[in-house]
């Protein structure tokens, strides 16, 4: 059993590829005892049968099934119609289970990658129900403040984080290049590292008060503009990590987003891959008294 603590939550993971997760999540290892806030367990079974409940077919190989007690199941099947994977998460996201088929080769992913992804999903829902949130973005700490660069995949958020580190190595620390959390201890938006960080290994257990959220898009010329909260709901919500099937979690994430936007400056940054972009952003942050 791997025991973690992050964002104030205790998490127990009992996964098939325990050694991998023990190494990958080592910075968050914790010695807590008693009932955790989230327990996530993997199982192997010779055969799987899809649970019965209210179904929504997502694509030919995946459906969501909501059970009578509110348990949400993500069920995958192969082209032959056999159930190959089931992910069950309780309505309060305190217990998640993954069921894999024994002696079965998953076509598009490894068991470890699936465990990684779904344990993260469970954590994101659990955190949302605590009033906090996880979002896609590259997070850095700069002069004691948290800065998140958020964008669709491939736009260059990790590049921006790396440029800051390269330009100002003594003042910058990379925290998580894929999905940092924002928590609200004492009502203060606080950037927090979490163990999950996508394909990037940077997942530092560091918490800092939020300085700025920066939405980025590719541009020919660097440009930065401060946005009104009302203009950023849609682009930011798109980057939040939460199950769309747990309505309570989805609603809670909206509330968290509202709290974040009330207190955190948000910018739109047209970026290039050159050093002029971070220099321009820093100039704006200094002018606005953020760092």
């Amino acid at each position: 059993m791997l025991k973690l603590k992050c964002c104030g939550l205790t998490v127990d993971l009992e996964l098939l590829h325990g050694d991998y997760f023990r190494e990958r999540f080592r910075e968050y290892a914790d010695g807590h005892s008693g009932r955790p806030d989230l327990i996530c367990v993997s199982h192997l079974a010779a055969e799987l049968s899809a649970p019965e409940g209210k179904e929504k077919r997502l694509d030919p190989f995946k459906k969501c099934v909501t059970l009578e007690d509110g348990t949400i199941c993500s069920v995958s099947n192969n082209p032959e119609g056999e159930t190959t994977f089931i992910f069950r998460v309780s309505p309060d996201a305190s217990r998640a289970e993954m069921w894999f088929r024994e002696n079965y080769t998953y076509r598009y992913s490894t068991r470890t990658a699936i465990e990684y992804r779904y344990s993260c999903n469970a954590f994101c829902d659990r955190l949302a129900l605590e009033g906090d949130m996880v979002l896609h973005g590259a997070a850095i700490g700069f002069r004691g403040k948290g800065v998140v660069f958020s964008a669709r995949p491939g736009v260059g958020k990790s590049t921006q984080a790396s440029l800051w580190e390269k330009l100002w190595p003594k003042e910058t620390v990379k925290i998580n290049e894929d999905r940092p959390a924002v928590c609200f201890p004492g009502g203060v938006p606080t950037l927090c590292g979490i163990p999950w960080s996508g394909s990037d290994p940077v997942n530092r257990d560091i918490s800092l008060p939020m300085g700025a959220l920066v939405l980025i898009r590719r541009g020919g010329v660097p440009r930065i503009e401060r946005l009104r909260p009302a203009d950023v709901f849609a682009p930011v919500y798109r980057e939040l990590c939460v199950s769309h099937y747990n309505k309570r979690a989805a609603e809670a994430v909206y509330d968290a987003l509202g709290r974040l936007l009330e207190k955190t400056p948000v910018y739109m940054l047209d970026c290039t891959m050159g050093e002029e972009t971070p220099r321009l952003a820093l100039e704006a942050f200094e002018k606005d008294g953020i760092v």
């Binding site: 009302a230 609603e251 909206y254």
Partner: peptide, 16 residues
């Protein structure tokens, strides 16, 4: 929802 001083209609269902 009232979010950051704005009235915003949100969707918390599968089509969100």
């Amino acid at each position: 929802k009232a979010l950051a001083g704005e009235n915003v209609v949100i969707n918390v269902g599968p089509d969100s």
